[in-house]
């Protein structure tokens, strides 16, 4: 019986890993398509990101003359860290076999590791583009990470846990109600998600004018399979943040198994999966609308934008410290 649970648990966890990996390029493609339609363009087909990845994987890698071994290892590190983090966020079902491996603080820190190495990669070739990308990336991260931690604090103090499965279960229960601190945390989380994923107005994923970009400048020297992994990691990170917002602020339909293994039934799983796809579509659509409606900021306006997120999240945490009812 226990072996059955373990087997089912492994299957479900494996299914989630594959699901996030397969859905991530689709989400990116979907957002691109909606943006194009909003601009009255036809846009690339939905499956274009998959084709791009396969094409990149087949191509040779061109390394800069000065690139070191670290430059070649980093794409795998970044991809592995992002994939692991993305598969620890509940998608269709919470309380998976390994969900206790890392709580939300640890998931954020695993993403921090990925960024740390990517910023190093930007410095490896010894060009100015990599340097400008890395230095701006760490500047953005130096504000986005504390903001994210404060958001985690605020929500953890409401849910009484930093464990994502427990948090999602709490958010799905009737106890939660409407709270000021949750509203503040949601706004801050959206700002952080936009910044972390290098979306407009913080950065522009579509531009290739080197001086205006952050993330794209950092990875400018990458090509072939390395670039494919980094693009896939970027898509995974977008999916991770969308799943995170979905599981914390829209946990409806998420099958809740708590922290212990439970009997797996087909119907709630299907409902969970359908709800997840629906939530991805809605949030992806909102992202596309937001990006189309707003202009990119100057780089040194970004700290103010992120500082607002940090302050909102700190305010949410403070409110929780002051009174339990906020």
């Amino acid at each position: 019986m226990i072996r059955d649970f373990a087997l089912q648990g492994l299957t479900l966890q494996g299914a989630q890993m594959l699901l996030v990996l397969l859905m991530a390029p689709l989400l990116t493609g979907f957002v691109r398509k909606v943006k194009a339609r909003l601009l009255s363009r036809q846009g690339p087909p939905l499956l274009q990101p998959y084709r791009d990845l396969i094409r990149l994987l087949r191509k040779d890698v061109v390394l800069a003359n000065n690139a070191s071994w670290l430059f070649r290892v980093i794409p795998y590190l970044v991809f592995a860290a992002t994939w692991v983090a993305a598969s620890l966020v509940p998608t269709f079902r919470s309380g998976l076999l390994f969900s206790w491996t890392a709580d939300l603080i640890a998931i954020i820190a695993v993403l921090g590791s990925a960024r740390f190495f990517l910023a190093l990669a930007g410095l490896d070739a010894g060009t100015s583009f990599g340097g400008i990308g890395s230095s701006r990336e760490v500047m953005i991260a130096s504000l986005a990470e504390p903001a994210m931690l404060m958001i985690v604090f605020a929500i953890a103090l409401i849910a009484g846990s930093t464990q994502l499965s427990t948090m999602a279960a709490f958010m799905n229960s009737a106890e939660v109600g409407l709270r000021v601190s949750l509203g503040l945390a949601l706004i801050a989380l959206v700002i952080v998600a936009v910044a972390e994923n290098a979306r407009i107005p913080v950065d522009n994923p579509a531009t290739h004018l080197e001086l205006t970009m952050v993330h794209e400048a950092m990875v400018l020297e990458y090509s072939g399979r390395h670039l494919a992994l980094i693009e896939l990691a970027a898509s995974l990170k977008l999916l991770l943040y969308v799943s995170l917002i979905a599981c914390l602020f829209a946990p409806w339909g998420l099958e809740n198994a708590g922290i212990s293994p439970a009997v797996v039934a087909a119907a709630p799983l299907l409902i969970g999966a359908a709800a997840y796809v629906g939530k991805l579509a809605v949030l992806g659509f909102l992202l596309a609308v937001f990006e189309t409606a707003i202009a990119k900021m100057r780089v040194f306006r970004v700290p103010e934008f992120l500082g607002a997120a940090l302050m909102l999240a700190l305010l949410a945490t403070l409110l929780r410290f002051v009174s339990r009812s906020f």
Binding site: A81, V84, D103, Q163
Partner: peptide, 15 residues
């Protein structure tokens, strides 16, 4: 465990 847990070994192994 329902509050918080972290497993460095598994995070390392997974990565």
């Amino acid at each position: 465990e329902s509050r918080s847990s972290y497993n460095g070994l598994l995070v390392f192994a997974f990565m």
